[in-house]
Simulated scan of single mutants.
Amino acid sequence: MEVNKDEALRCLSIAKQHLSNGNQAGALKFTKKSIGLYPTDQAKSFLSQVQATSTNASSAKTTGANIHPGRQPSASSSTPSTPPPEKKHTPEQAKAVKTILSCGTDYYKVLSLTKSCTEVEIKKSYRKLALRFHPDKNGAPGADEAFKLISKAFTVLSDPQKRAIHDAGGGDPEMRSSSTSTRQYRQYSGGGAEEMTAEDLFDMFFGGGGGMRHPQYRRQQQFRHPFFNAAQQQHRHARQQQQSPLAGWLQALPILVLLLYALLSGLFSQDSTPLYQFQPSTVYSQARTTLDLKIPYYVNPTSFTPIANEHYKLKRMERQVESEYVNGLNVHCQNERRQRSFRMTQARGSIFGIGHDKVKYEQARNMPMKSCQELKELGYNPDYIYY
C-alpha cells in the first residue's frame, strides 16, 4: 500500500546499515520486511545483492573448512566484498538539492513562495517539490535532508499558529517554543533571569494592587518572618496616606481611557449588515465565485462595488467566505459521521449479537457523506476539525 512506502524505505535503510556492518542475516530480514510493506525496485535489487553476498560468504566458509590445517588458503578462496550501488542522479538534481539546503529555516524560500501565499498555493508547491526531491526520485547527495526540510516547511506554513510565529520572528517555531518553555521553567524554579508576565504588566499599568503579584514573589512572602510582614504593611499604609488625590486620579486614568475608547468604538462602529450570503435573495442578487476554491456566494451589487474596486479588500473578504464555507462543511461532516456511527451502533445490536440487522448495518455504513466528500474535493482532510 502507498501508506506503507515510507516505512518500507526506512526498513531498507536499516537493511543497508546491517549489510555494511557485516550482519547479513539482519540485512536479509529487513530487506524482506521492506518488500512485504511496499515492493520497490530498489528493495528487490538490494535483496538480490544480499542473497548473493550470503551465498559467497557460505561458499567461502565451506572452502575454508575443506582446506588442510597445515596449508594456507589460496588468494582465490577469499570473497571480495561487493560495494553498495550508488544512486544515479543528474547535475541538475544535485544543484537543486544544494539550493533547497541553502534556504535554512526560511520556509517560504524553501517552497519558493512569498509571505502573501494562500493555503492552496502552499499545498501545490509542497506536492510538486515532494515528488521532485523524494529519495526514490532524486538520488543526489543530501536529497533526504532536502526532502525533510520541504516537509518541515509545509508543516509550519500549513498551520496558522506556527505560520504566524514564523512570520513574526522567522526560524523554526517549534525550536522557539522549546526555548520559551525552558525559560519559563527556569523562571518558576527560581533560577536565571525572570521574564515579565501578564500579571506583572497589569500591576505596572494599574498601579500595583495588593493581590496581583508574581507567583515567585508570593512564595517568597510566605517564608518571611511575621515581623517583616507587619513592618512592610505599616510602611505601605503610611505611604498610601501621604499620596495626594492627584495620584489616585492618575491611577484611575487608564480605566477612564479604556471606557472612553469603548464608548467611541460603539459610536463609530460600522454597520453590521453582512457583505455576502451563500443563498440568493432580492438584496443579495449578484452571484460571484471565490478565486482560490471557487466557492459560490452572493452579494449586494450596490454595497459591493467599493470592495470590488480594491484588490486587497476583495481578497480578504473572499478568504473570509472560504473560511466560513469550509467551517460549515466541517460541522456538517462531523454531524454526518456521528449520525452514521449512531445508525451502525443501533444496527449492530447488543454485545452478544442480539438484535443485529445486517441490512441496516450495511445501509448505515454506506450512508452518503456529502459534506465530507466536498471537503475532500476542496483539498481538506475531513478527519481534521477546522474551527
Rank of each mutant, 00 (worst) to 15 (best):
Q277N: 09
P84W: 14
P306Q: 12
L253A: 14
G170K: 05
A65T: 09
T118R: 07
R236G: 06
H134V: 08
T53E: 13
Q232L: 11
K358W: 00
T155N: 05
Q373L: 14
V257Y: 08
D172Y: 05
D292H: 05
R288G: 00
Y38W: 07
N56Q: 10
M175S: 14
Q93K: 12
Y384P: 03
D159E: 08
Q286S: 04
A230S: 13
L246G: 06
D383M: 02
S281N: 11
L375V: 08
D172H: 04
G36L: 09
P296I: 04
I150P: 06
E362G: 08
S20M: 11
D6K: 13
S116V: 00
V110C: 03
P296N: 13
S341Q: 14
L264R: 02
A164M: 03
Y217G: 04
F304T: 02
Q241T: 15
K294C: 08
F227V: 11
Y361K: 07
E318W: 03
P368H: 06
S178K: 03
L267Q: 00
F304A: 10
N229R: 13
R236T: 07
Q373P: 00
T105R: 00
S59Y: 14
N23E: 06
T63W: 02
S13H: 09
L246Y: 07
V359F: 04
Q241I: 15
R213M: 07
V321F: 04
Y325E: 04
Y297F: 15
R219H: 12
P73H: 05
V120T: 13
Y185N: 09
D203C: 09
P226S: 06
K313E: 13
A164T: 04
Q42F: 09
A57K: 13
A25Q: 03
A252V: 05
S350W: 11
H237D: 15
F154G: 02
T114C: 02
T55D: 10
C117V: 12
I35C: 11
G190S: 05
Y380V: 12
M369E: 09
T273G: 06
E2L: 01
A94C: 04
G191C: 05
A25M: 01
Q222R: 13
G353Q: 08
I255M: 12
Q216L: 06
C103K: 09
G266K: 06
P135R: 10
V97G: 06
G379R: 03
G210M: 02
Q93V: 08
K137R: 12
K98A: 15
Q241L: 14
Q72E: 02
S58L: 15
L314F: 08
K358Y: 09
P83T: 15
C117I: 02
L12D: 00
V120Q: 11
Q339G: 10
D41M: 07
T55Y: 05
M1S: 15
Y384L: 07
D144I: 09
I385G: 06
Q24D: 04
R132W: 01
V3R: 14
V326Q: 11
L129Y: 12
L19E: 08
Q232I: 08
F154V: 01
N66V: 12
N335F: 00
F268H: 03
I295C: 11
G379L: 15
Y185I: 01
G191I: 01
F223Q: 14
